[in-house]
């Protein structure tokens, strides 16, 4: 797929996002390398969803530079090339699984047989075989969220922006989805996957750790463990936060660091 000159699928410089009275992100610089599975990890409330919404162009009050696949975030041309899965499953509960997927395939420009083929492939990819005709409203939460993921897949995007796609799924299914993410990145696609579950860090090619709207680390899973000497990602994250707090002398909220340490 298309790589940009600097190999970044998403590039933010001085990004600032205000929601209501809060400045959720204040001066963020970040690069998402193309062709990789990049994890956006951070505790609940750290600004993951806000950042992803700005990348797909539905977040208001965004200032600074934000470039996606070489174009300003939210440009009309990107809507064919970027797929977005919202944190809460955003599919029609009163339609069947297959009706939902055919609809989103059609919006992405596939009609008739092509739309049905894409829908069937996506059903298989998220392991919902046998549920095709079921109304989404009668699916379990985890199944619903997989329909929502499949609705991204039918659009065949270059950049997949997935907000907590594996939350609440059983371990086998989670492993299968991460395998699929890597298969997709093997085809040259970029995946930006958020999670507040630190265990998922090990599955990513690259990690962006977010806390309080700021980047705590931009690293790889191996580097993270090596740098911190921690046995797992969760403790590595805590170590980084403790270091940041003592290092910069702004350690006023060391108490929240441990509660910020994710679940």
């Amino acid at each position: 797929m298309v790589n940009n000159d600097d190999g970044a699928a998403v590039r933010a410089r001085g990004l600032r996002i205000v929601r209501g009275a809060r400045t959720v992100i204040d001066g963020l610089d970040l690069d998402v390398p193309a062709g990789q599975v990049v994890g956006l990890l951070g505790p609940s409330g750290s600004g993951k969803t806000t950042l992803l919404r700005s990348i797909v162009g539905v977040q208001a009050n965004v200032t600074g530079d934000l470039t996606v696949l070489g174009a300003p975030a939210g440009s009309p041309g990107l809507r064919r090339r970027v797929g977005y899965m919202t944190q809460a499953a955003s599919v029609y509960t009163d339609l069947s699984v297959i009706e939902n997927l055919v609809h989103f395939a059609a919006l992405a420009g596939r009609r008739g047989a092509a739309a049905h083929a894409a829908a069937a492939d996506a059903v298989a990819a998220v392991d919902l075989g046998g549920h095709e005709k079921q109304q989404v409203g009668s699916l379990s939460g985890g199944e619903r969220s997989r329909v929502s993921l499949a609705a991204v897949l039918v659009g065949d995007p270059e950049l997949l922006v997935l907000d907590e796609p594996t939350v609440g799924l059983d371990p086998v299914l989670r492993r299968d989805l991460w395998d699929m993410f890597h298969r997709l990145s093997g085809e040259g696609r970029t995946l930006l996957v958020s999670s507040h579950v630190m265990d998922e860090a090990a599955r990513c090619d690259r990690l962006l750790l977010l806390r309080g709207g700021a980047l705590v680390a931009d690293t790889t899973p191996d580097e993270l463990l090596a740098q911190t000497g921690a046995p797992d990602a969760e403790r590595a994250f805590l170590t980084l936060i403790d270091r940041a707090n003592t290092g910069t002398g702004t350690g006023t909220d060391a108490g929240t660091a441990s509660s910020g340490g994710v679940r």
Partner: peptide, 13 residues
């Protein structure tokens, strides 16, 4: 409220 509009706004629609 279901988020489908937000999703639609990220598609070519």
């Amino acid at each position: 409220s279901s988020g489908t509009l937000e999703r639609l706004m990220t598609t070519p629609l």
